[in-house]
């Protein structure tokens, strides 16, 4: 019931970012993925999201809850068009796509899920606003509502707080706590260590490999076999 990494190598064959990443991240964890620029945080998240193939090895997401088998990903620069003619509610409803497919109609339960997601991110009163009129923080909360509606067990976030104010950041952290409370695993790439302290686990990427430890600095286990990591030292992500 966890994310299992098996000798994973990330990057490109000609430009390996990190190799030999192995280990297990337990279900229901909130993990801050930290490391310097170029350490491979975004590359690792893209690989886990299926956006980029691993150079070597594999990973398995083995959810304890059947409906949590999928993986959701919010990239650092979402590709949502800034002038998209969508209301906040429609954006959240996009999260139903994987389940409804081409012709499925949202049922009452789906509508309730959208209501609940908008409520969790604090956008219920703005559900009919066009997303093009939202502030950066409000848009990020709307994208978190879509992630909530997706109902995935593993949620990957790439620098989710980089363009939001303190109030929105606090709200987003609340949402992450809510997800973890429901048994979901959240892995968030974060460059601000103060912000990362809100996450109980730190997954640190450096030229020496990947280390999983508690945020109070007590090392838990190495996720990288050192000899493999040193052969694939991060140069850029």
């Amino acid at each position: 019931m966890s994310l299992i990494l098996n000798d994973l190598a990330i990057g490109y064959p000609a430009n390996l970012v990190m190799a030999g990443i192995g280990g297990t991240i337990p279900d229901g964890s909130a993990v801050a993925l930290i490391g310097q620029n170029g350490a491979g945080k975004s590359t690792l998240l893209r690989t886990l999201a299926g956006e980029q193939s691993p150079v070597n090895g594999a990973y398995f997401w083995d959810a304890s809850v059947k409906r949590h088998r999928s993986i959701a990903w919010l990239p650092q620069s979402p590709s949502l068009r800034p002038d998209a003619p969508l209301t906040v509610r429609n954006l959240a409803a996009m999260g139903l796509w994987a389940r409804l497919g081409l012709f499925g109609k949202p049922c009452r339960h789906d509508q309730d899920r959208i209501d609940q997601a908008l409520d969790i991110v604090g956008l219920s009163d703005l559900e009919n606003r066009q997303v093009s009129t939202l502030s950066g923080g409000q848009l990020q909360r709307a994208l978190f509502a879509r992630l909530t509606v997706q109902d995935c067990g593993l949620i990957l976030l790439d620098e989710p707080f980089s363009a939001v104010d303190a109030a929105s950041q606090a709200k987003l952290l609340e949402v992450i706590q809510h997800w973890v409370g429901e048994g979901r695993t959240v892995i968030a790439a974060i460059h601000d260590l103060d912000c990362a302290r809100h996450f109980p686990l730190w997954w640190e990427l450096s030229k020496f490999g990947a280390i999983l430890r508690r945020c109070d600095d007590k090392a838990l286990s190495s996720l990288t076999q050192p000899h493999r990591a040193l052969s694939g030292v991060a140069q850029s992500s």
Partner: peptide, 9 residues
Amino acid sequence: DPKFMRASG
């Protein structure tokens, strides 16, 4: 949102 389309499951 093409990235969401690819990674939405």
